[in-house]
């Protein structure tokens, strides 16, 4: 396989599995910016080692293994006083997250439906919160509410969304 074909094949696989890989990393890394940095490193390593990948096997499992080691590397580099889950718990969560990664598609479908059931104010708040560079404080400033009020509202929205998602997944037929 020449380099171009190899690159195209890699692109297809990575595009397909990128959401799962990021979700896996995000489970193990508290900070969003750090998680995105780890994802970039993982992409780089996956490409460098793509010759090691056996076509027909599980790309996501292979990616999770590399992502896990990148997370460990990231933890080693982190500040000594940075808050992180204990190593044994990271390992446990990594195994479970990898095991459950196949649920991501139905989870996403359910989330899409559940978001439409939110009120306009809640959707607006959610939209603002996930703009680039936004945080609770900037959202609070933008909507003229206190930071704690925004925080409480988001907590409520997360709870509603998670309950909604779970009910859709667990209902007969699951999420559409």
């Amino acid at each position: 396989m020449d380099t171009t074909d190899q690159h195209d094949q890699f692109m297809r696989l990575f595009i397909q599995h990128q959401p799962r890989i990021y979700a896996y990393i995000r489970t193990l890394v508290f900070n969003r910016a750090d998680a995105e940095e780890v994802l970039q490193e993982v992409a780089s390593v996956l490409w460098r080692r793509f010759e090691d990948f056996t076509p027909g096997t599980h790309f996501d499992r292979w990616a999770f293994t590399i992502a896990y080691h990148q997370v460990l590397y990231h933890r080693q580099k982190a500040r000594r006083d940075a808050l992180m889950l204990h190593g044994d718990l990271v390992e446990t969560l990594a195994d479970q997250a990898a095991e459950e990664s196949g649920r991501l598609d139905e989870f996403r479908d359910a989330l899409s439906e559940c978001v439409t059931q939110l009120g306009a104010t809640d959707r607006d708040l959610l939209s603002r919160r996930y703009e680039s560079g936004a945080n609770n404080r900037s959202v609070a400033s933008a909507v003229g509410r206190s930071e704690s009020a925004v925080s409480r509202a988001l907590h409520r929205i997360y709870r509603v969304l998670l309950e909604c998602i779970r009910s859709k997944i667990e209902s007969p037929g699951g999420a559409s």
């Binding site: 959401p19 990021y22 995000r26 489970t27 919160r129």
Partner: peptide
Amino acid sequence: IDFMRLQSLLERNEIA
């Protein structure tokens, strides 16, 4: 894991 999965989808605008 579900909570962090929710965050990952919202952060990367992966919803429909």
